[in-house]
Design a protein around this nucleic acid. Structure first.
Length: 263
DNA sequence: AACCAGGCCAACCGCCCAATT
DNA sequence: CAATTGGGCGGTTGGCCTGGT
């Protein structure tokens, strides 16, 4: 892609790995003044870095709530499930893995999971061939085939809703355009689809069926902000195992649930 | 011991959106 | 309404590390 001029290339700013001294300066400043105002921060903190670089360093490495160490098997499984639902929306996935950063998850996916799943998929393909194309209506946790790109036949509601999530944007700053994602979600200002989705939502809200279904499924799960139809951005630690245990119809309902609240 | 290839991951990049001017 | 600014995102790079030869 080429690295041309950027904020970091302006007038003698440092690039590359951070030193311990720079880390200390950044941490001290944020502890005293809080996060934000990244563009002005470097000057005030006495750093020769651009604001974006400072923000990235803080968010991905210095934040006190960052969880260090290897991704656990539970987290691994949850990442796979969430990726199958959300695609490459790393920040959203990270939001459901307390202490993990989007960058970390993205790296983990690219270096571990994508390869592993490619192999799994290959094997599944061969198996499928052998069994003469018989398919299952149950989406297994590790059977990732980007939900967004599937035919989504398992769940009309969820898939339609997902279509509109691309440019509605929530506090995640909106799923970014930048190409891939918008295409992946099939959103390009198609008013007809959006109207269809809205109508579908209204219908669900009126009937209450959707919430009734979810209520049973998510009883006990600590979804933040799920009570009043608000977006769900984070999930409590102790909900992992319950999520991981979801399979079959329950898992399909989970897809619908997330799709709904991500709009 | 030296070299090489591949993997990992911190950091940078360009782009986008929302808020502000 | 247009331009600017600030913040955030996903994609990509490149240096370091490790294992194999």
């Amino acid at each position: 892609m080429g690295r041309t001029s950027s904020c970091c290339s302006k007038g003698g700013l440092h690039k590359g790995p951070w030193t311990a001294r720079e880390d200390a300066l950044l941490v001290n400043y944020i502890q005293q003044n809080g996060e934000g105002h990244w563009r002005a921060l470097p000057k005030k903190a006495g750093l020769l870095r651009c604001g974006k670089s400072c923000r990235l360093r803080w968010m991905n490495y210095l934040r006190p709530d960052i969880k260090r160490g290897n991704i656990t098997a539970d987290e691994d499984d949850l990442i796979i499930k969430l990726h199958s639902l959300l695609g490459n929306r790393w920040s959203l996935i990270a939001g459901r893995l307390p202490g993990r950063t989007d960058n970390e998850i993205k790296n983990y996916w690219n270096s571990h999971l994508s390869k592993r799943l490619a192999i799994t998929k290959d094997n599944a393909g061969e198996t499928k061939k052998e069994s003469n194309g018989e398919t299952s209506n149950t989406r297994k946790p590790t059977e990732v085939s980007s939900f967004c790109n599937d035919d989504n036949s398992s769940n009309g509601i969820g898939s339609e809703l997902l279509l509109s999530s691309g440019n509605q944007g929530g506090e995640d700053g909106g799923s970014r355009g930048g190409g891939g994602e918008t295409d992946q979600l099939g959103v390009n200002g198609d008013e007809e689809i959006i109207e269809k989705v809205k109508a579908g939502r209204e219908e669900l809200e009126e009937s209450g069926d959707f919430f009734d279904g979810c209520e049973g499924l998510y009883k006990g799960l600590s979804w933040n902000g799920s009570e009043n139809g608000e977006r769900v951005d984070e999930i409590e630690d102790d909900s992992y195992q319950q999520l991981l245990n979801l399979e079959g119809e329950d898992y399909i309902q989970l897809e619908s649930f997330i799709d709904y609240f991500l709009i």
